[in-house]
Simulated assay, not measured.
Amino acid sequence: MKNLSIGLNVLLLIAVIVLYILHFSGSSKSTSSQDGVATVNADAKIVYINMDTLLNKYTQSRELNEAFLKKLEANRTELNVKAKNLDREIAEFQHKAENGGFLTRERAEQAQTELLIKQQNLQKLQQEMSENAQREQMEINRKLYDAITNFLTDYNKSRGYQLILSTTLGGNVLFAQDGFNITNEVVSLLNTQYQKK
């Protein structure tokens, strides 16, 4: 009786393996474009997009990030100019203090207090600029995320994918057969849509 149970289990296991192999080794209906690059597998219900590539090639992403970087550079330049001016004023104050350039002790203390206030204001400005930059970066990311997900919602109406994943360098998709990466098609369509706006 025990041998019969083991035999049936082995037979069922073999049957499951055969069905699994037959199901997943069927011919895929992958087509190739004229330039030799494989297109999306027609049977694929799960595809992925490489977000690094998409964000580097998507015109709106590039434009938003270039404007953001220019603003960061302008802020950094403004901070550097103000910091150099403050350093110069501090050096002048020290020079005056060492050479008895202040008529009274009160005047020296007043000048020192003014410099401390300027230093605190500069630190406050730096903090505000940093917080504003973080908010702007989050807003850019939200804007791009909304644009991409809204596009993919419409895009998928005609494609019927069950799942569209995103990956980055070192992300979750470590290997995929040809035909599951829809990045180039999505980038092309996104750029076309963005140019029309």
Rank of each mutant, 00 (worst) to 15 (best):
Q123E: 09
D154E: 06
T113W: 02
N132P: 03
D146I: 14
Y145W: 07
N150Y: 13
I117L: 11
E114F: 05
N156E: 06
K118M: 02
L116T: 13
E136M: 02
N156D: 07
I140R: 04
A147W: 06
Q137G: 06
N141R: 04
K118C: 00
T153F: 09
K118Y: 01
Q134A: 12
N121Q: 11
L122T: 08
R142M: 03
N121C: 01
E114Q: 14
L125K: 11
N150P: 00
Q112Y: 10
K143L: 14
Q134S: 12
A133C: 03
Q120V: 08
Q119K: 15
Y155F: 15
T113R: 05
A133P: 01
L122P: 00
L115G: 11
E136D: 14
R135I: 04
I148W: 04
K124Y: 11
A133Q: 08
Q119G: 03
N141M: 03
L115T: 13
Q126W: 07
A147N: 14
N132K: 13
Q127S: 15
N150Q: 15
R135G: 00
Q120N: 10
Y145C: 03
Y145I: 02
R142D: 03
Q120E: 12
E128Y: 06
L122K: 11
T153A: 13
D146Y: 11
Y145L: 13
Q127V: 15
Q134M: 09
A147Y: 07
L115E: 12
Q112H: 10
I140P: 01
E131W: 01
E131K: 06
D154Q: 07
I140D: 04
K143W: 03
